[in-house]
Design a protein around this nucleic acid. Sequence first.
DNA 1: GCTGTTTTCGAATGATATTTCTATTTTTTG
DNA 2: CAAAAAATAGAAATATCATTCGAAAACAGC
Lengths: 299, 299
Amino acid sequence: MSGRGKAADEPSSHSLETAARKRSRSLAALGYTKPQTYEELRAVLSSGTVHFPKRLRQVAIFLWQHPSEVALGTIAQVAEQAGVQPSTLVRFAQIFGYSGFSDFQLLFKDRMKGSWPDPQGSPDKAGEPNVDLHFLNGMVGACQASLGRIGNNFDIAAFETMVDHLAAAELIYVIGSKRAFPVTTYLSLTLSQQGVRNVLVDNVGSTALDQVGCITPRDAVLAVSFSPYNSITPDLVAVAHERKARILAITDSTFSPLVKLSDTWLEVVEQDFGGFRSLAASLAVGMALVHGVVARRTD
Amino acid sequence: MSGRGKAADEPSSHSLETAARKRSRSLAALGYTKPQTYEELRAVLSSGTVHFPKRLRQVAIFLWQHPSEVALGTIAQVAEQAGVQPSTLVRFAQIFGYSGFSDFQLLFKDRMKGSWPDPQGSPDKAGEPNVDLHFLNGMVGACQASLGRIGNNFDIAAFETMVDHLAAAELIYVIGSKRAFPVTTYLSLTLSQQGVRNVLVDNVGSTALDQVGCITPRDAVLAVSFSPYNSITPDLVAVAHERKARILAITDSTFSPLVKLSDTWLEVVEQDFGGFRSLAASLAVGMALVHGVVARRTD
DNA sequence: GCTGTTTTCGAATGATATTTCTATTTTTTG
DNA sequence: CAAAAAATAGAAATATCATTCGAAAACAGC
């Protein structure tokens, strides 16, 4: 919000050098021009041609998933939520050719401007006097928001491809840890209940690597992973990839390490509330996958 | 965006007088309390009971008509667009009981938060020509219906009791199988992440009975079970009951065998679609439980 | 395992935004 | 119509923010 006056000016002779040097290893070298709209930015981020180091990737993931926080917050607030230093945000913006964070933030503000949320359906709930009830409502809201996003932005083509591959597979390996584990357990359960043979790679007894070591090219892997991507899932999927199995992924951004390993992937972004993330959308998509596989196989 | 630190503090003895004098001819005298949400503010404005002088009326009209500008802009930008001085905006906010503009602006930001404009895809997908998409939408509908039922018919008293018992427990045993297992895995994971010690009774190695054999009266059992109630969950809970632990249950009808074994129980009814049941509501309630326990323990 | 480079962190700095205060104008009231 | 009260505008003061820069840490290449 501040420091815009000087920032908008042409750089002085000294900072010109600095800026030029920095930009040389930035997007200009890659033939990109400064994104003028939020959609352009999103396109550049998802193109996969830019590879960020850890902290900058963290920034990319955060603003991919929480654009409204970026639009509404100050640099300090955004930095704290994203878990980085404020200066990291400035660096990120400058890599894209902006003079600083404020300049960069305008993208998000412009995108948001004019779109005022409709009067909420719930007629004010008598002010939610109870703190626990407030949290519950927030959590329900997060679930519904996650589910709502499926309605729009759903890549039905990728979904169909995934179903085809899964239906054609000899054996389906289901992989996911931490937050994704509830999703994979339900997937495995419903697949089995529908008569689709599958292996849940749950790493009980630390046998996961041995399990994926048995994968053949005729098998398919259904992997689920959410940010932060610090579980063993990518390692396991990498092995499966080497063994030439089909890799199908459900994940929450293009920055997931699963994306470059997978034949087809679906983006499912879960909202969180108070640090607790919803799983509603992933489960719904997962059930749809199971249903689709069963339908293909019984045709 | 700035100057919030001091503003949030209690007014000093000098400004206390000033503020009190001002507030005496403000809304407090009219029996209004400081609006906590944008909706409340809007209600007050539209009630017609408040009569503003020229400039303040100008402000009221502007933020009625351009809420998103107020949320996104700085006080200077808003003031210019509204055609008033920045200090007028501060006065306006203070009349409503806020410490200043920043404080007041939070109403607008909060209202806007989380509502990111969707990329406006085709509104209704031409009647779902795709069978897979139809199922997915049905599944999403089932999830939303399940979540919707929480809003109404939620036994908040039972919920509070459950949280109290869980918070008081020495060790929490989480039990659930089949369909309920994804819920219990997520419960166990989030409890652990929040530093609440717990045991997930997952029956790996068929050790579940031995595990529950270690339960003491100071422990609590959080059991999840859905119909048909043909899993081993009731058996395990029965053992825990004999061992005089507190039993807290999430289940989907009064006919559940868990009901007569448990000290307190919550009814969460999940809808199904095409034989695939949603877990969204149970997960949301589960997260709320975890949140509640953490809140109780950190008091 | 070392060296040169890239990346990150954190404090210092310069700039902006918000608020307070006072003189002036407008409105109300006797 | 005059005097008092209220409201406003504008400037000064203060708190916060965004940015820069140098040092430390992490990383990659040899």
